[in-house]
Structures are given as structure tokens and as C-alpha cells.
Amino acid sequence: MQWQFWIIQTLNSVAFGGLLFLLSSGFSLIFGLMRIPNLAHGAFFMLGAYFGFTLLQLKLQFWLAALAGGLGVGLIGIVMERFVLRRLAGNEQGQVLVTLGISFIIADICLLVWTGDPMPLSAPQALRPPLRFAGFAFPTYRLVVLAIALAAALALYLLMERTRLGAMIRAGVDDTEMARGVGIPVSRLFTTVFLLGATLAGVGGVLGGPILNAYPGLDTDMLPLALIVVILGGAGSLLGAFVGSFIVGFIYNFGIALVPDLAYFVLFLPMVLVLVFLPQGLFGRVQI
């Protein structure tokens, strides 16, 4: 009994950490490269969950719905970057405010379209029965979500560390102006990273649906977590987003399970400490 509790909570934590990674890896790359927190990122996640809900209702296969939902959100990300953020280039305060405004707009539209009731997404049929092993029951779907997040982490790692595009993005995170100076088309990188980040957040929303449901307020529940991950891990650092996601996944889950009244205290305390003593985060280069 006791064992089952710890195992389940640990699994929930890593699965939630995986979802957080899908959300915060893009958030972190955008933050590192464009120097702005995209405050619409939580709304991207929520929109992904709602897209997933509707696509599943239309009888689309689950994984296709995750992909299509992600790409739909990615498309919205591109439009937002090209037609709004780009016009405010150089005005970082304006850009941050715009991302906040867009997050409110998305939240309102979701309320209008999907009403205020929580919308449940169901996991694929085959993954619903728990996995039994050594006398314990493991939630299969969460294990698969974790596996997908790890695969995404590996793919992002290879993209960032093993390709010229990744090196260019890292150069832009290091010194945006010098990156332009050596001929790197940084504004095209902005669009690319925004597309990538929004798509990942959207996919995360669909995959998170069966665990969290789609509901109004999902955006504002998730955004602070992404912020904490990035502050812990360091803006622009993929490794930081990875480690930070699982740290926050654990603290959040165990916090809620063990000391529900203090969940936010145990969550935000490490963030405050890191901000005060390690302002660049555990792996970061960009001063927040």
C-alpha cells in the first residue's frame, strides 16, 4: 500500500515532468533567443488540449490528433511571431505585454468555443488498462507520455547540438547581435523557434489532456510552472529545461500529495532561492 503510493506518485511526477518539458523546452528556447518570456505559452498548451478534444470528438486517431493539434498551435505561433512580435522588434516590453494580451484573447476564445466546463480527453483505448509488473499496477498512458517526452528531448538535443541550425540558434542565444553580424538570419530563427516552441506546447496540451483535462484556467495553471522551470534551469538551455521540468514535476506532485496547503510554497521557494543566488539558473547563460 505504502509502496504503491510512492511508486504511483513518482510515476505521476515523471510523467508530469515530461509534459512540463514539452511545454517549457520551447518556452526556454524562445526566452533565450528572443529575450522575452512568451506569456502566451500556457495558452498554447491549453489550446492544444482543446484542439485535441475536438479532434478526438471528430473520431481522429489519438496520435494523429496530438500531431494535428500541435501543428495547429504551431501555426498560430507563426502568425503571432510574424505579424505581431516582429513589428515590435527591439521593444521587449511591448512584446511581453503583447504575449500577455494574446494569452487573454486565446483564453476568452476558448471559453466561447468550449464553454466553461472541463472537457475530458480520453487516452487511447489500448493504453487505458494499467500495466501490471512485480505485483504493482503502473498507469500505462503516463509511462507512454514519459517515453514520448524523452524521445522529444533526444530529438531536440540532436537538433540543437548536432546540426548547423542548432548551432546557429545557440549562437543567437549567446550573442544575438554578433550572430546577425556574422550573417546568421536571426529573425528567421525567431520564427523557427517560435513554431517549434508553440508546436511542442500544443502537442503537450493534447498529450496532457487525458491526465489534466481541458478546462478554463489550464493556461494560468501551467504558465507559472514553465516560468519556474526556466528560472531553475536557465533561459535558453535545453538541459536546464530538461532537469528543471523533472525537478518541478516532482516538487509539484509530491507537494500536492503530501502538503497540499503548502504546494505553492514548496514550488516557488526554490525559484526564489535560485533567482537570488544563481540568477542565470542551473545551466543558463542569459541573465533573466
Binding site: R164, A167, R170, A171, V173, D174, M178, A179, R285
Partner: peptide
């Protein structure tokens, strides 16, 4: 680009 390797600095 301080966090890139020598080769990557040239490559980009």
C-alpha cells in the same frame, strides 16, 4: 560565441 566550440563558431 562562448558556449559554442571552436568548430561551431566557424561553422555558423
Amino acid at each position: 560565441f562562448r558556449t559554442l566550440t571552436v568548430r561551431e563558431n566557424l561553422m555558423v
